[in-house]
Design a binder for these strands. Structure first.
Length: 423
RNA sequence: AGAGAGGUGUCCGAGUGGUUUAAGGAGCACGCUUGGAAAGCGUGUAUACGGCAACGUAUCGGGGGUUCGAAUCCCUUCCUCUCUGCCA
């Protein structure tokens, strides 16, 4: 969420930056400032009257103690008058605050200066690429055929149990998932991240704090009986650890990693784009999250990008890193780098990680602050990234490591899987 | 799931309608004292909003109510603990 004080001081800059994100209602900036002016005015007169009520009430107490009942009763009457004035003020103030809040949550985060202009994925900027394209055997197949051939994943039975997009992993396929999770977590903790295993459902307050609510309501599964939401990513529960918390500056940076299943309704496209493991409703992911000093977030973002890159290199997959343009970025992000892995058999790039700096957008929304050396309270910055999302890594490894007689494994995974080859 | 007990500041903890301006203690910070340390003494020690400021307003788990006045009374909700039940 953007801060009114910032919008007030940077009215034109904010509008310019919102335009980069293709935000359709620049005038909302003015609306918000007007509403805030109104709120201030209302509060001033409310506070003034309330102060009169408070001091008169105290006076009544003193008069009663003295036994001056007559004067006490007279004071009660004037208090009654003031309270009548208070009622409409209170209502109006509550309404203005709701309006202000409703307007504020509509703003996406402002883009970082490095964010390229552009509207669609084609306008994302290639930062660098690495890895080598594999030489696939003749008759190389896409992962949806390979997993069937080797009985690693059964979509039909998953659909029978739950619905489409809920894959059932079997045998070596299931074990491979477990090996990947274990490897990713170990890789992250070795780099200093603390491992968490969070709840997989969150309440509405948590979903609001990380920006899933109110605008992305339909993308989450909702357990209505208890009003819990199934998490779309571990970012939600883990970042919320620090909701309404004032940290000490010395505690920063906080580095967390967590495995979780991710649940996404993903109302969307059909066909090749979503075939096999390319897009599913439930998938496994290991996430990295940092809460840092605002001065450090640019630097930390780069560190996180390098961290994820090293992980991809260790898997021997051909990859590229893109800096997303304003039109392709997430709502809450100030700057995002996407990692894509080349699926040789599908002949297309698959997004496997997205690393973002949210700056103070989430932390303001969830009141995650820290006390600096001077004793001043400031909002921290939050960042997160996948390291990594499993299904597409699974797909890419199965495709890129296929041989004529089976599927090989990257060296780094062999000890985790307990064999040199997947098949 | 049923019954009961609770939720107060950084922490412990007092507080059943009015100098509570939340006692007292601990911790922490600063100062005094000291050769140095401990002890002792003194001062300070939540957040948000409004205001140039003085200061004001709100907050005793959350929300609502009663009252001139609520940490205190009522309703509601969440959470924790104990016992019982159920369960991997």
């Amino acid at each position: 969420m953007l801060q009114v004080s910032f919008l007030r001081q940077n009215r034109d800059l904010a509008k310019k930056k919102l335009a980069i994100k293709h935000f359709a209602q620049p005038d909302l900036v003015d609306t918000v400032i007007d509403l805030d002016d109104e709120r201030k005015q209302l509060q001033a007169s409310f506070d003034e009257t309330q102060a009169k009520v408070n001091s008169a009430s105290k006076e009544i107490g003193a008069l009663m103690a003295k036994g001056d009942k007559e004067k006490a009763e007279a004071t009660k009457i004037s208090v009654g008058e003031w309270k009548k004035q208070l009622e409409p003020l209170k209502e109006k103030m509550a309404q203005v605050e709701i309006d202000l809040q409703n307007a504020l949550v509509q703003f996406p985060n402002l883009p970082h200066d490095l964010v390229p202009l552009g509207k669609s994925p084609e306008e994302n900027v290639l930062v660098r690429e690495g890895g080598v394209l594999p030489k696939l055997p003749a008759g190389a197949e896409a992962h949806w055929d390979l997993i069937k051939k080797y009985n690693l994943v059964d979509f039909e039975t998953g659909a029978k149990i739950t619905g489409s997009g809920f894959p059932l992993y079997i045998g070596k396929g299931a074990k491979f998932q477990r090996a990947l999770v274990q490897y990713f977590l170990d890789f992250n903790t070795a780099a200093g991240y603390t491992e968490y295993l969070p709840p997989f459902m969150v309440n509405a307050a948590s979903a609001f704090a990380t920006g899933q609510l109110p605008d992305k309501e339909g993308q989450m599964y909702h357990a209505t009986e208890d009003d819990f939401y199934l998490i779309p990513t571990a970012e939600v529960p883990v970042t919320n650890i620090f909701r309404d918390v004032v940290l000490k500056e010395a505690e920063l940076p906080l580095q967390m990693t967590a495995y979780s299943p991710c649940f996404r309704r993903e109302a969307g496209s059909f066909g090749k784009e979503v075939r096999g493991l390319n897009r599913v409703h439930q998938f496994e992911k290991v996430e990295i999250i940092q809460i840092v000093h605002p001065n450090k977030s640019d630097e930390v973002l780069n560190e996180m990008v390098v961290h994820v890159e090293k992980l991809l290199v260790s898997l021997g997959l051909p990859y590229r890193i893109l800096r997303l343009c304003g039109g392709d970025m997430g709502f809450a992000s100030a700057i995002t780098y996407d990692f894509e892995v080349y699926s040789a058999a599908q002949e297309r790039w698959l997004e496997v990680s997205s690393v973002s700096n949210f700056e103070s957008y989430q932390t303001y929304r969830m009141k995650c602050r820290f006390k600096d050396a001077a004793g001043k309270i400031q909002f921290a910055h939050s960042l997160n990234g996948s390291s990594l999302a499993l299904p597409r890594i699974f797909a890419a490894i199965v495709e890129n490591y296929q041989t004529e007689s089976g599927i090989a494994l990257p060296k780094a995974l062999q000890s985790y899987f307990g064999a040199e080859n997947l098949i």
